[in-house]
Design a protein around this nucleic acid. Sequence first.
DNA 1: GCTGGTGGTGTACCGCAAGTCAACCTGCGG
DNA 2: CCGCAGGTTGACTTGCGGTACACCACCAGC
Lengths: 194, 194
Amino acid sequence: MTTTREKLLDVAADLFYTQGFQSVGIDQIYGQVGITKTAFYKHFESKDDLIIAVLNRRDQRELEEWGNYIRIRGRDDSRRQLSAFFELLEEWFSKPDFRGCFFLNALTEFPNENDPINRAACAHGEHLASMMLRFAAAAGADDPAALTQQLMLLITGAISSRHRTGDLGAAKTATRVAHVLIETHCGRAALTAR
Amino acid sequence: MTTTREKLLDVAADLFYTQGFQSVGIDQIYGQVGITKTAFYKHFESKDDLIIAVLNRRDQRELEEWGNYIRIRGRDDSRRQLSAFFELLEEWFSKPDFRGCFFLNALTEFPNENDPINRAACAHGEHLASMMLRFAAAAGADDPAALTQQLMLLITGAISSRHRTGDLGAAKTATRVAHVLIETHCGRAALTAR
DNA sequence: GCTGGTGGTGTACCGCAAGTCAACCTGCGG
DNA sequence: CCGCAGGTTGACTTGCGGTACACCACCAGC
């Protein structure tokens, strides 16, 4: 049994992702769930409140999913774990309903840094980066923080490129570059990041 | 003497960039210029029309600026020209009013591919890529299209990273990776992209 | 000297979305 | 039997995008 609140979050997440946050009216959301406006406002204080809840829930779930995927695909090899991030991108990009990164999108729709929505969206990137940092450290990178920065840049770039051009090959492009970086930073005679 | 239309475009470009397209009302725009709503609608058919005009003008100007910068900084050395793209990023990122890429932002605020705003925003990326492609070809890259794809991915990633984390070092990170790629693709014994 | 285009003004109005308010209904556990 | 969570209806306010209509001032050309 899914509660009404859960249903609202599901519908909202879907609409927000496909159409953007600002262009979706709450009437579409509560209408699709089958309740009235007043009922909606018993679950969420405001549209912003709903957006933040959607963002936080998706942050948690996505982090879990990514973590599981990487542990499974990466086996016990830390370097494979790092490159698993990019295999995941490939799968993601091939989905027809791909519309970029939910959190990156939120960030550009709410550019004010003091906006709680902006903060919630930023948090996801930080969570993902700190997860990657652990893998990079485990892989014996000479400078795990630098490697994480570079790989995160590649991931962000791949997502934005795929989003902009619709090019499915963006993941492969990023993967190739990532392998070079991983080899360089985790090689036996690892070079400095300069 | 700047025409009213030009003033409207200037004010709109500024507000849209700093606050986003949807969250800026046209009343702010015509108010700041000092005309009334009716007068505004004698210059532009709609808000969408204004947005497209702003986008197109900025596309032209930015392309010109980038082209000039690269020709000056790159001198006659094609490889230097390619890496000048990244030097430009560094300068751009250090500006306090940096808010990401205007066109990438437009794209996420108007995700519908049939939306003329979306098309106008996409166009900029294509223009930039085709400019880069010419430089890549001139630099004697083994596969100019592939190199362009990779460098564009890096640029996009750097912009988004800087936007998300506020990290000024994103440009340097991208530059380092770019140099590796340029060397690999333009080396005397150039390897294939695979 | 009248005509027309350009670039304005003011006011009133429509439709839609966010959000509020008040009054009322219903099922369920303590 | 009470209270509360979750729901309903309907009327209302505010703000924004956009329209309609009537009017004004200036400058250029035949």
